[in-house]
Amino acid sequence: MQVPDLWLVQKAKNGSMAAFETLLSRHSRRVYNLLLRLSGSPTLAEDLTQETFLTAYQRLPDWRGVGALSTWLCGIAVKHHLAARRKIHFTEALDEHEDLAADLSSDPLARYTQHEAKQALDTAINTLPTHYRDVFVLVRVQEMRYREVAELLDIPLGTVQSRLAQASVLLQRALSHSTEGLPQKGTKRHVL
C-alpha cells in the first residue's frame, strides 16, 4: 500500500529528507511532462522541474493539504514556466524520442503510424500560440479542471473555455494537413 502524500508532507515538514525524496520521485515525472509540453524543450523542462521542487521544498509549510499535492506542484511548475517564458524565446522542438507504449502491436506499420501521429500531435501542440497551448496542455493533457487552470493562469473561466475551443480548432486543422498521406486504418498501402 502506498503511503499517502499528506503523511509524507507532514514528515517532510518535520525535516525528513527521505519523505521529500519519496514525494519527488512520485511526482517529478508528471511535473516534467507538463513542463515539456508547455515549453517544448527537454532541457528547459528539466531545469524548471528542479526549480519547481526546490520551490515546493521551501514552501511545503505553506501547503494546506487542500486538494491534491500534484495539483499544487503543477501550479508551481506553471508559474515557473510563465516566468521563464517572459525571459526567453522557445525554439526547441518537443522531444521526439519518447518511448512507444510497450503494448503496441508488433506490426511495424502500426507502430510507425502511431509514432507519426504522436509526432504530428506534438508538433501541432508546439505550434499553437502560447496562450492557447498553455490552456490546452493543462486541461487536455494534465486533466486539470477549468477553474484550476483559470486560477493558475490568472484568467477568467470563460477565457479558459474559449482558448481551449480555439486550440482544438487549430489543432484539428493542423492535424488534418499533417496526417494526409499516412495509411488509414483498414486501408492497404501498395508498395512498389
Results as ranks from 00 to 15, higher is better:
Q10K: 02
A150Y: 11
A102K: 09
G40K: 12
D5V: 02
N14R: 00
R111P: 04
G186R: 09
V139G: 03
A56H: 11
T22I: 03
L109K: 06
I76W: 03
R37Y: 02
Y146W: 14
A19I: 09
L48E: 04
F20W: 01
D122N: 15
H27V: 12
P108Y: 00
E143K: 03
V66L: 11
P156W: 06
G75M: 03
L34D: 03
G67E: 06
H115V: 02
V149N: 02
G40N: 12
D95M: 03
T127C: 10
T43W: 05
F53M: 01
Q166Y: 09
A101F: 00
L171Y: 00
K185W: 08
D99H: 13
T127K: 15
H81W: 13
L24W: 14
S41Y: 01
L35D: 03
G186W: 11
Q172H: 10
R147T: 14
K13R: 15
N33M: 10
V169S: 01
L8T: 10
V141M: 06
G65E: 05
N14D: 11
L157R: 09
V66Y: 02
E92V: 08
I88Y: 07
L36F: 05
L153P: 14
L48D: 08
E151Y: 02
A84K: 02
T123F: 02
T52C: 07
L94S: 07
P4E: 13
R163C: 11
R30N: 07
L69V: 06
K118H: 05
G158T: 06
T159V: 11
R189F: 00
K118P: 00
L23F: 11
Y57F: 12
L38F: 04
S41P: 08
L60Y: 06
D122P: 04
M144G: 10
A150V: 12
P156D: 06
A150E: 07
E151S: 15
L94Q: 06
A124D: 00
L164S: 12
T52L: 00
R189E: 14
W7C: 08
Q10P: 02
G40A: 10
